[in-house]
Amino acid sequence: MANFSTNEFKAGLKIMLDGEPCNVLENEYVKPGKGQAFNRVKIRKLISGKVLEKTFKSGDSVEGADVMDTDLSYLYTDGEFWHFMNNETFEQIAADEKAVGENVKWLVENDNCTITLWNGSPIAVTPPNFVELEITETDPGLKGDTAGTGGKPATLATGAVVRVPLFVQTGEVIKVDTRNGEYVSRAQK
């Protein structure tokens, strides 16, 4: 993998830091009138998700990280791995629990997910922004409430729990925003 000098650092560049692939978020150039220049760089570690600030001597270079995003369709889980397939090449990739993480609750069969690969292995799985899931359990609530005020918890087919309006019932399919875990609407039939 190529090395990148601090003056090539920009948002989106993937670099290696402490043995972990990272995404550059911001790069600020600081230089005293007399003396060495530095770059104050804001970084997100891609495995732990931690955001931190790191200072580099300007002109120093760091190893790039072989990180790429690929869109794959979710197939199934065997309990240990989550299997995804490239719909064009039919090539399959298995992501482990660590890579799937919290997003396991948004995985719907045949949905297109973004799989982040580091050196060819999945390190993160990002579900589509919106998924449709069936409600498996929720209190019947009040029949007359159509305004959707208040709301109630509902458990979805994947185990995810979201707040839904009172009028939505068990067995219905709803649309959820996976970025904040919020109910959007009933699914269009």
């Binding site: 005293p32 003396g35 060495q36």
Partner: peptide, 11 residues
């Protein structure tokens, strides 16, 4: 040493 002093001074 001056590079490190400049680093600590600015950061």
């Amino acid at each position: 040493p001056d590079i490190l002093l400049q680093l600590l001074c600015s950061e």
